[in-house]
């Protein structure tokens, strides 16, 4: 049995890694460097990284308290709510983009509300951010919730009996102990945000950013492929893959440093 399982595993691993490795080594470093120096490309990559970072930061501020409540409190409809939170993962992302447009468009409820304070979403960086956030925040919430669940509730009880207020207990006990799960959830969220295509395409295509009008990196790859073909799209694809990989590996290394301690 083991042999069959190992062979099947190798088939799958080959399927995952072959395209990534083949693409990564397909462009020469000089081609990559020149591509990176194109304004279209670097402003697109910066926009993507920046917007995903903002989305993750907002996700942390709003998602961690929600995750804590889900881990600690029992309330009516909790199961349903947990299912609902994962909906953005399972619906087509172009449909998610349409749904967002319906709420954040200029003539709709939240769009109007934010319009009063000068924030618009359609074809703006803010639109990229909420599109990324919508489709990626479930990863953060789920991971943070599991992290809080793994913290023995009696540690919090002991802290309270030792004179710690609920706030102090949260910041000195619960949060540090769940931190690794929260951080790896945030990395997942950020990575998922980076790669978002469908929802961003609908809500915010070309956006004003750094004195130009870039599109996010996944759209740039698709655009170049559709308009100019494989050779033109490939270096951008390689750059996007490499940057994502380096960031992902670095962050995971930080998160799991001292795991054995």
């Amino acid at each position: 049995m083991s042999i069959v399982f190992i062979v099947l595993s190798f088939l799958l691993l080959f399927f995952i890694f072959a395209p990534i490795i083949k693409t990564s080594v397909s462009s020469s470093p000089s081609t990559l460097w020149n591509t990176l120096l194109e304004q279209d490309v670097y402003s697109s990559i910066l926009l993507t990284i920046w917007a995903a970072l903002i989305a993750t930061a907002i996700g942390l501020v709003l998602g961690v308290p929600l995750a804590y409540l889900l881990a600690r409190r029992q309330f009516w409809g909790k199961r349903f709510l947990e299912g609902l939170i994962d909906v953005p993962i399972v619906i087509p992302h172009s449909a998610a983009g349409i749904a967002l447009l319906f709420v954040f468009g200029k003539q709709f409820f939240l769009g109007k509300l934010f319009g009063h304070v000068g924030i618009t979403f359609v074809d703006a960086v803010a639109g990229v951010v909420i599109a990324m956030m919508f489709v990626s925040v479930p990863f953060l919430i789920d991971s943070a919730r599991d992290g809080f669940k793994a913290v023995d509730v009696r540690l919090e009880k002991v802290a309270r009996s030792l004179g710690a207020s609920p706030w102090r207990t949260f910041f000195r006990v619960s949060l540090p102990l769940a931190w690794r799960s929260i951080f790896s959830g945030a990395v997942m969220m950020w990575a998922r945000g980076l790669s978002e295509f469908g929802a961003v395409l609908i809500l915010a295509y070309y956006v004003p950013f750094l004195n130009s009008h870039p599109v996010v990196a996944p759209i740039l790859v698709a655009d170049r492929f559709a308009s100019f073909g494989l050779d033109y799209a490939r270096p951008v694809a390689v750059l996007v893959i490499l940057i994502s990989l380096i960031a992902f590996i670095t962050l995971r290394t930080i998160a799991f440093r001292g795991e054995q301690a």
Partner: peptide, 19 residues
């Protein structure tokens, strides 16, 4: 609230703060 009671508790398996 518990932090204002001045009552200490020690559980069976101690639950020390692992961090």
């Amino acid at each position: 609230s518990p932090e204002k009671r001045g009552i200490g508790i020690v559980y069976q398996d101690q639950v020390l703060f692992p961090h």
